[in-house]
Design a binder for these strands. Structure first.
Lengths: 211, 211
DNA sequence: GCACTTATCTAAACGGTGTCAACATGATCT
DNA sequence: AGATCATGTTGACACCGTTTAGATAAGTGC
């Protein structure tokens, strides 16, 4: 009954709350920050009682994980897109890094939430393990940029290093201490590119030195 | 009055609570984790009422910052020591990185707390800005390892990159996804060394390729 | 149509939290 | 001595995550 309007199933009397809750959470995260993201606030924002979410998520944690999930999907899409639009393999690598960083700078609270939930489980988000996911695109981009595809160990090390480096940069890139350097380089993006270039794993291995 | 026993000033009737609170917090952090670190729990552990801490710290945040502070001091000392015990400039660089990583692995909850509080202020901990602090030792170690001391910009970029990379690795190094690689390399330390070697900024610039 | 089951939501409560105002205590100073 | 001020306690407040019990509405079988 009712128009099935929004594409996905809307099962019972309220409309599908779980989606509404996740969206409410994202809204709060953007407008008021992580400190204001209480279960009760999310329920309030969605117009239901504080206990309602417990019929859709066993925990506050589980709700946050759902929010993080959509975040990982979004950043994954941004990465595939960034890679596709690159001219050279070397550019693809730095584009991936830049896409990751742009996402984290545009959604800082969401990115922190994403990372906190994955860190609590001490394991990569599920997407990262699927070939088509956009997160482990780094590995194949490394190969295209000149890494030896037969040296699996070396490849994994380079991938892990890339991941760590770009995550660290994502968390620190807005530190005030870097402002002077940023200005000297002419803005945020040149700064990020410069730092990426210092990470061994984001540089072009095929020797013609991009850009 | 009373024996001045523990070296430092113990001003009023209880003994100096602020130090006791910080130590209580560290104890809780180690034994029960960050989730259990409430102001009330800290007060309980220190044997005072829940409101007592407010005469020494204006906030829970301010108490946590004090805890983080002693953490930064400790990691700084570990870094100077690690650098001192290095034979070559290249070894000094990787030793610094490794000391940082060892500290974060031995005190995971404390390290996370340290980083969370500095991140909330979006600026490096104060120690990092002092020449003798052990944190900006990276810069001078880079010079000794072959970086051009006159190119201030390049030097700062390399330092920032090192910092970001090692922080990212510190946060991710216990991910289960890396266990296979670790085993293949024969343990945690070889793994960490290998990743460090992939960070452009931690490699020896003086061309003789350490180890 | 009906009863019955099941999913969903509400109301009310519990223990825990950060914080504050009011008050008590004891050290220090003149 | 008394006054002052730093330090402590008590008790309250609003908010939090979570659970229990009960209301309501949708789907299912007759």
């Amino acid at each position: 009954m009712r128009e099935t309007g929004n594409a996905q199933a809307r099962p019972y009397h309220h409309g599908d709350l779980s989606r509404a809750l996740v969206e409410a959470a994202r809204r709060i995260l953007e407008s008021e920050g992580a400190a204001a993201l209480s279960l009760r606030a999310v329920a309030r924002e969605a117009g239901v009682s504080p206990a309602a979410p417990y019929h859709h998520f066993k925990d506050k944690t589980e709700l946050l994980e759902a929010v993080a999930h959509v975040g990982w999907e979004a950043i994954g899409e941004a990465i595939v897109e960034a890679r596709r639009s690159a001219a050279t393999p070397g550019e693809a690598l730095s584009n991936i890094g830049l896409a990751y960083l742009n996402f984290s700078r545009e959604n800082p609270a969401l990115y922190r939430l994403m990372y906190d939930t994955t860190r609590d489980r001490t394991s990569m988000p599920e997407h990262a393990k699927q070939e088509d996911s956009g997160l482990y695109q780094v590995k194949s981009a490394l190969v295209q940029a000149g890494a030896d595809p037969d040296d699996e160990l070396e490849l994994q090390l380079a991938t892990i290093a890339s991941w760590c480096a770009v995550h660290g940069l994502a968390e620190m890139c807005d530190f005030k201490d870097f402002q002077a350097v940023k200005q000297r380089l002419g803005g945020d993006e040149p700064f990020l590119r410069a730092i990426l270039r210092h990470f061994g794993t984001f540089t072009d291995r095929s020797a013609q030195g991009e850009r």
